[in-house]
Simulated assay, not measured.
Amino acid sequence: MDTHAIFNIQDDIEFNDCCLQTFHYQITNCEIYRYYVQYIGVDPQHVKHYTQIPFLPIELFKSQRIFASGRVPQVTFSSSGTTGMITSKHEVANIAIYETSFRKAFEAFYGNPADIAILALLPSYLERSGSSLIYMVDDLIKQSRQPASGYFLYNHQDLANTLAKLSAEKTKTVLFGVTYALLDFAEQYKVDFPSLIIMETGGMKGKRKDMIREEVHEILCKAFHVPSIHSEYGMTELLSQGYSTGNGIFKCPNWLKILVRDTNDPLSLLTDAKTGAINVIDLANIYSCSFIATQDLGKIYPDGSFEVLGRFDQSDIRGCNLLVQ
């Protein structure tokens, strides 16, 4: 597979070409994906456009090995979960592809990380192994030439002092924070840092009661005196991320695309700006599966941006029971 072409896609024609090449590679080399495509009765020779490509139910990453034959994994990422919960596993054959993906996307949205103070308030991620988010943040911190860059576990006073110093120095700063930890911090401290980019990720992790996005963002905007809260749309099963610079509207790099499917017919895509279940095309997922049907509900807008509206119950995912069992 030509990774150079994937990360240099310029238009929908090039995107479609890369999708078709990736599809045929994965149908040949990823056994579980091939079985799934056969199971739902799709003839690969009839697939001429990325909207015709079957999307693998994301649940299969919990029960099956989604990996290209003949490859050896360099790293395995795993999802978070409570005790006893079955987690997703994503084996990565070429970690350089993941590095290229998140580096290019981050720089396109936020600039060169060398010029940015990268701070991280991600306790639940640091307390387990296999987090793809921690791998990314580690790399961004290493690229940063700002001495304040680093992690803050539960040392909120140190974080408050660091933010105050960076604000006074007018240093461009990105704070990655799991939602519950940002809210914990906001209850204790108020920071006047209007140019701070707060990158919310990860949700409540069972630490606090669930809240709607608007309520969370209002609390954080007031605590940090910022106009908006940024968010990352990523997951263990992907090697690319979309970013929201505010209002919960996400945009993607050119090798990542979001589609929506009918929740009552998982093989049917919705072409209008309607609410549906999110399907993801991540062309960086060369050696696993690039075409994934998630459990997220979302809405696509005409410019290709999208909004995540919540999740639906896994029982709504049809067509994968045979492989799950």
Rank of each mutant, 00 (worst) to 15 (best):
L60P: 01
L56K: 00
E59N: 03
I95M: 04
Q157V: 14
F102E: 00
M85W: 11
I134W: 06
Y98Q: 05
N155P: 01
L119E: 11
N94G: 02
H46K: 09
T51K: 15
P147F: 02
G150E: 09
G81N: 07
A148I: 10
Q64A: 11
T100P: 12
D138A: 10
Y151L: 12
N112A: 05
T76L: 00
T76D: 02
Q52A: 08
S80Y: 04
L140P: 06
A117L: 04
F102C: 00
L126R: 03
G130C: 15
L56R: 00
D139G: 08
T76W: 05
Q45K: 07
I141Q: 05
S80Q: 02
A96W: 14
H46F: 08
Q64R: 09
Y110H: 11
H90W: 12
V72Y: 10
S88N: 10
L122Q: 02
Q157D: 14
F67G: 03
G70R: 07
T87W: 05
V47K: 06
Q74W: 07
S132T: 15
G70E: 03
S79T: 03
N155C: 14
S69I: 10
P147H: 04
Q74Y: 13
Y135D: 12
E107P: 11
Q52M: 09
Q74P: 05
Q146H: 13
N155V: 05
R103V: 08
S131M: 08
P57D: 03
S101A: 10
K142S: 12
G111C: 12
L119F: 06
S79V: 05
I97D: 00
T76P: 00
R71Q: 14
M85A: 14
K89S: 15
S88P: 13
P57I: 03
L133S: 05
H49P: 06
R65A: 10
I66Y: 07
Q45N: 11
Q143L: 15
S131F: 13
A114D: 08
Y125W: 13
Q143M: 13
S131V: 07
T83L: 15
S88D: 04
Q157S: 14
H49C: 06
I134P: 01
T82N: 15
I97C: 01
G130T: 09
I95G: 02
V75G: 01
P54V: 02
L122H: 00
Y125E: 06
S144I: 02
Q45Y: 09
Q143I: 11
L140I: 06
K142P: 07
P54S: 09
D115W: 04
L153D: 04
F77Q: 01
G84R: 06
L122P: 00
